[in-house]
Simulated assay, not measured.
Amino acid sequence: MQSKVLILGGRGRIGTSVALDLLTHTQAQVVVTGRSTATATSPLLEQFSDRLQYLPLDLADESSLSAAISPVDLVVHCAGPFRQRTTAALKTCIAEGVNYVDVSDDRVFTQAALENASSAEAAGVTAIINTGVFPGISNSMVRQGIEQLEAPEEIQIKYVVAGSGGAGVTVMRTTFLNIQHAFDAWVDGRWQKISPYTDRETVNFPDPFGKASVYWFDMPESFTLAKNFPVKTVTTKFGTLPDFYNHLTWMTAHLFPQKLMQHPSFIEALAHISHRMTSVTDRFSGTGVAIRVDVLGQKNGMPARYYSTFVHDSAAIATGLGTGSIGQFMLSQQIQKPGVWPVEAAVTTADFEKMLASRGLVVTQNWY
């Protein structure tokens, strides 16, 4: 029988990218949801109109959510920002016996989702969270590196995005929500409080990015990687191009009054202003993403340092490729692991490398 996939938040740029990947690489029937009653979907998906359906859906309506989830084989949750989402969709999937994937990029949501691991396992439901590009492809790059060392000790992940990354205003909201509070990072074998957007560092990324500046940033990988691998330190840093956006973000994180930053209407205004700005600079900067992963430790009894890099010309499309490939593997039952898992705990390096090959993606691996 033909598989059926439900994409929550499927009309945004991330959701559209995921839908495009699944429609391209599987024969599944795809249902995309959104809050609007208008039925039009992205022109990018028009060629798949025979396998595409639109469903208006309010995620807060529990009965409608359950009715939408119960007849499908896989749910892909793309309706961020996840700092403002509950785990209702995941819990409904568990109750209905439906597998689940999301593009979540928030530590608080991640921790809440992982609390459902035992109930998902008991229900035989495989739920993989934090898929996409970062987190997602980045997590698998770390696992790939960890497996190269006999005794890994430290993980460093650096990300840079050009302009908007090709994503919508939701990504802007996520950034401003994530820089409001200090967060816990695993440093020197203990959890330490880190102030967001601090400790500026210049990193040499592959072309066309070159040297770019990154800052401490709260990502769910900083939590899950520390839990899943025996390392003493996990560093996650993020930056944007052009560089003046980094300075604006630093000012927002450190100079704006905290009460103002916690006001939803102010965050919404900042997000829309930022989106309008990047819509102009994207024409010059592009919308790409670069990842650099360094893993330090021991190999053959000697200190060793492994690093890998990944580049794509659209962060939004790369997210679709990462999430879509995992969805494909779940639909084909290549990945079956009941429970709730971050990418690095559910996707083997062999499957990750198959995904890269199938999507024409390259991760460059090096030692020094």
Rank of each mutant, 00 (worst) to 15 (best):
G97E: 13
H312F: 07
G210F: 14
V289S: 12
R173Q: 13
T131I: 07
Y307I: 04
F352R: 02
R51E: 09
Q53G: 03
L296S: 13
A112C: 03
E46D: 14
V98Q: 05
S140M: 10
V76P: 02
S285E: 12
R85S: 06
Q262T: 08
H254L: 10
P257F: 10
L241D: 00
G239W: 04
H247E: 11
K299Y: 09
S164Q: 09
K232Y: 04
A38P: 02
E154Y: 02
S325H: 08
T252E: 03
H312E: 07
V101G: 00
W216R: 13
D102Y: 05
Q2V: 12
L114D: 05
V18P: 00
S274G: 14
Y100C: 07
F244N: 08
P264E: 13
Y159G: 07
I94W: 01
V343N: 04
G15H: 10
V187M: 04
P206V: 10
I7N: 01
L356H: 01
M261Y: 03
F109A: 02
G15P: 09
G97T: 05
L23S: 06
Q156G: 02
S63C: 04
V289N: 02
K91W: 00
L6W: 03
G145H: 00
F48Q: 03
V347N: 02
V98I: 14
G136H: 07
